[in-house]
């Protein structure tokens, strides 16, 4: 009897482990493993051009004392934040239209169409932008024909911003539309019945109620833009030396693994801090 129940328990445990174990095991080996290695590596040293396990703070002190690191750090942060805010403003009218002016059945179709580009060749879309904006490209040609300067638009913040928008618009549109779609309609009607003007409804009912989703939109746009190096390189044209570019240079350029690890960890820390602050602010209760 007890042997039987023990056997049964073992089989149940095995059945449970069959489903529960694979993902944690895979992620522990191939996700946490590499990330922990990165942390360890930031304390290693390079001796005679060879990477040696060590406990040394030299990479940290070297990287933290670099002036151009700090300037590219703040530049990355500022540019991505600017892009995140601008993309959110650009997306807002569209999200508003999808949430309030389109029937729910059609809304899903539009959301699907908005999200799909997120999964399609980002690189080719950046190449298309390069062609659009470059010398003799479609946009400069159009500007020229209406009497403006036909110079290349590449290597400018406009180009970088369009790259960031290409990457982040789908996510921002979905988050904003879901947030606006969840705003309580009866509260909106009540405000109207009490004599609120449309602009007041937007300011005092819609925007506060949708704040968490709208802030998450800004946050995700920021996270994606901050970590992005393709637009910054091929549209911003190296005018904007950002952290991810610095990182790819460090690695592709030579043996500076510990320094690259330090830069990576700094990036992660900044992203984590920004996320925590944004989420706390987004979900703050009214009146606090």
């Amino acid at each position: 009897m007890s042997v039987l129940s023990a056997k049964l328990r073992l089989r149940r445990r095995g059945w449970f482990a069959l489903w529960a174990a694979p993902l944690p095991v895979w992620f522990a080996l191939f996700f946490l493993g590499p990330m922990l290695l990165l942390i360890a590596m930031s304390f290693w040293s390079v001796q005679n051009y060879r990477l040696t396990p060590d406990f040394s703070l030299s990479a940290w002190s070297y990287v933290l004392s670099l002036d151009f690191l700090w300037s590219s750090f703040w530049r990355s942060y500022g540019l991505s934040l600017l892009s995140a805010v601008l993309v959110s403003l650009l997306a807002f009218p569209a999200s508003y239209a999808m949430a309030f002016l389109i029937s729910p059945a059609r809304r899903l179709t539009f959301l699907g169409l908005a999200l799909a580009p997120f999964f399609t060749s980002y690189l080719v879309r950046i190449y298309s932008l390069q062609v659009f904006l470059g010398e003799g490209g479609v946009l400069p040609q159009m500007f020229h024909s209406i009497g403006l300067s036909g110079a290349s638009l590449l290597n400018s913040y406009t180009a970088l911003f369009l790259g960031h928008a290409t990457l982040t618009l789908p996510v921002v549109l979905v988050l904003q539309t879901l947030a606006l779609g969840n705003v309580d309609r009866t509260e909106m009607s009540a405000a109207v019945n009490l004599g609120a003007r449309p602009l007041q409804v937007l300011r005092h009912i819609i925007l506060p109620a949708a704040r968490p989703g709208l802030s998450l939109g800004v946050l995700f746009a920021f996270l994606l833009s901050y970590a992005e190096f393709v637009s910054a390189t091929y549209l911003g044209g190296g005018v904007f030396q950002t952290l991810p570019i610095l990182l790819t240079d460090l690695i592709r350029g030579g043996q500076q693994w510990p320094r690259a690890a330090v830069v990576s960890l700094l990036m992660m820390a900044v992203l984590l801090l920004t996320s925590l602050v944004t989420v706390a602010w987004a979900y703050r209760q009214k009146g606090n």
């Binding site: 650009l90 997306a91 807002f92 009218p93 569209a94 508003y96 239209a97 999808m98 309030f100 002016l101 539009f110 169409l113 908005a114 580009p117 399609t120 080719v124 879309r125 950046i126 190449y127 298309s128 932008l129 062609v131 659009f132 479609v138 369009l162 928008a165 290409t166 618009l169 789908p170 549109l173």
Partner: peptide, 22 residues
């Protein structure tokens, strides 16, 4: 309404123009 819909169109142009141009 046309203001919001213009915004919607603009966003879809930005998203799909690079794809169509390819």
């Amino acid at each position: 309404a046309w203001v919001w819909f213009t915004g919607l169109m603009l966003v879809f142009v930005i998203l799909y123009a690079p794809i169509l141009s390819a």
